[in-house]
Amino acid sequence: MPRIDAERFLRDLNDLRQIGAYKTGVHRPTYSPQDMESRRWLMERMAEIGLEPSIDGIGNVYGRHKGPGPHLLVGSHIESQNYAGWLDGALGVVAGLALARAGLPVDVCAFADEEGHFEGGFLGSRSIIGELSEEEIDRSRSRNDGTPLREALAAAGLAGKPRMTLEPGRHKGFFEMHIEQGRVLESSGLRIGVVTGIVAIWQYRIVFEGQQNHAGTTTMAERRDAGLSAIRLLARIDEEFPRVAAERSVWTAGRITLDPGAPSIIPGRAEVLFQFRDVSPEVLERMDAALRALVRESNRREKCPATIEQMSRATPALCDPAMMAALDAAAEEEAPGAWSRMPSGAGHDAQYIAKRMPVAMLFPPSIGGISHHWTEDTKPEDLALACQVLANGAARFLAA
């Protein structure tokens, strides 16, 4: 089995960490000067290894293996959330470099904007599979400051560059290594997670219409308080969902907006952005049905009618059985008894690449389960172990 150069792998990770450094993490929003510097750094590393580097019109950096196949695609992303962690995404790209350096026939890719700094999100992985239209690029704006995507691409020097697409039949599969971003491995005393699938996220907007009025002169009996109606529905969701959800299902009211949002005015309107996640389509359908039933119940009980709109309805991406089996065997060889299969609760580029080829993912543990924050970290020995498991598993899959 190929052996990675663990010292060089960790040094590359730490070198990349210096670009956009923020406390112990990084700040590299998509198309920022720091992000573009990291993409140039990556292309230099690709060339040193013997890969043929390029960058396309959406910012995807691609290192093409020059030798014969069968080939694998390995990668993730290198932009970060704002003032966030140094490993989220970057780990998978630098692991790809390590596999190429170890002699494996891999193409390495850093997809642009997995973190969703621009409306639409997953711009790079969606673009490379042909699912990002020019019209969507025209419409997209920065979630941070409203900058049009076209302007950001031009400022980054990417305007006019063609956008690459995956070459049909070139790749046997796609491997993505990523930190877990949770505490399952750490709390179980495990060092490796072989991912079974990537959850789908179903998102909704729930709007309550009440009556804006004076907070001091309107009696409690007369009030039509949209805010209270929203809170009562969310409490009912939290009571009911455990009856229909699975063990790893999660749900979140990520934003509650009250209008007009003043301390002495009864809210006349409330808007809730709500999502739930699971890897099973059947569980997702149950949760959807339960949510809609709870909205109907709210409308029978409350003075403020609610309307529900589904904003997105993704499909779970299941990992390839043969690729998982190769990673299982590699994990047992490199870390006997210290690994487990598990689903991914977060979204990843792999869920889009799965539309074009088999995919698999591998997790090392996150210290304290922290991610999307500058304190995000993983032990160096766990990073090196996971990269070696990835190389071992990739070689097994290629040989199968």
Score class of each variant (00 low, 15 high):
residue 150 R to Q: 13
residue 164 M to E: 12
residue 206 I to T: 01
residue 289 A to Q: 13
residue 263 P to T: 10
residue 294 L to W: 00
residue 240 E to H: 08
residue 186 E to D: 05
residue 3 R to L: 14
residue 381 E to H: 08
residue 183 R to E: 12
residue 186 E to T: 10
residue 387 C to T: 11
residue 369 G to V: 09
residue 102 A to Y: 00
residue 249 S to F: 03
residue 333 E to M: 14
residue 369 G to P: 01
residue 388 Q to Y: 03
residue 178 H to K: 03
residue 236 R to Y: 01
residue 399 A to Q: 14
residue 63 G to N: 02
residue 307 T to P: 08
residue 56 D to P: 04
residue 123 L to R: 13
residue 257 T to L: 15
residue 265 I to Q: 02
residue 378 T to A: 09
residue 241 F to I: 07
residue 184 V to E: 08
residue 43 M to D: 02
residue 51 L to I: 07
residue 38 S to Q: 10
residue 372 H to M: 05
residue 288 D to E: 13
residue 12 D to F: 11
residue 102 A to G: 13
residue 58 I to H: 09
residue 4 I to A: 06
residue 15 D to H: 11
residue 304 C to S: 13
residue 154 A to Q: 13
residue 218 T to N: 08
residue 157 G to Y: 10
residue 160 G to I: 00
residue 280 S to A: 11
residue 338 A to I: 07
residue 178 H to N: 02
residue 348 H to P: 02
residue 344 S to K: 02
residue 148 P to G: 10
residue 309 E to H: 09
residue 235 A to E: 15
residue 301 R to F: 08
residue 394 A to I: 04
residue 269 R to Y: 08
residue 37 E to P: 05
residue 207 V to T: 15
residue 58 I to D: 09
residue 232 R to M: 14
residue 178 H to I: 02
residue 54 S to G: 14
residue 71 H to T: 07
residue 246 A to H: 12
residue 284 L to Y: 07
residue 57 G to E: 02
residue 185 L to T: 00
residue 146 G to H: 07
residue 370 I to L: 11
residue 163 R to E: 02
residue 331 A to I: 04
residue 128 I to N: 01
residue 397 F to I: 05
residue 58 I to A: 01
residue 265 I to S: 11
residue 137 I to A: 00
residue 133 S to T: 14
residue 375 T to A: 15
residue 350 A to H: 02
residue 267 P to Q: 03
residue 294 L to M: 12
residue 54 S to Q: 09
residue 238 D to Q: 15
residue 165 T to C: 10
residue 67 G to D: 06
residue 349 D to P: 11
residue 311 M to W: 06
residue 278 D to P: 03
residue 86 W to H: 09
residue 217 T to I: 13
residue 306 A to Y: 09
residue 287 M to Q: 06
residue 245 A to Q: 05
residue 238 D to T: 10
residue 365 P to A: 05
residue 33 P to M: 10
residue 386 A to K: 00
residue 180 E to L: 00
residue 235 A to Y: 14
residue 345 G to N: 07
residue 244 V to W: 12
residue 138 D to W: 12
residue 198 I to Q: 01
residue 268 G to M: 08
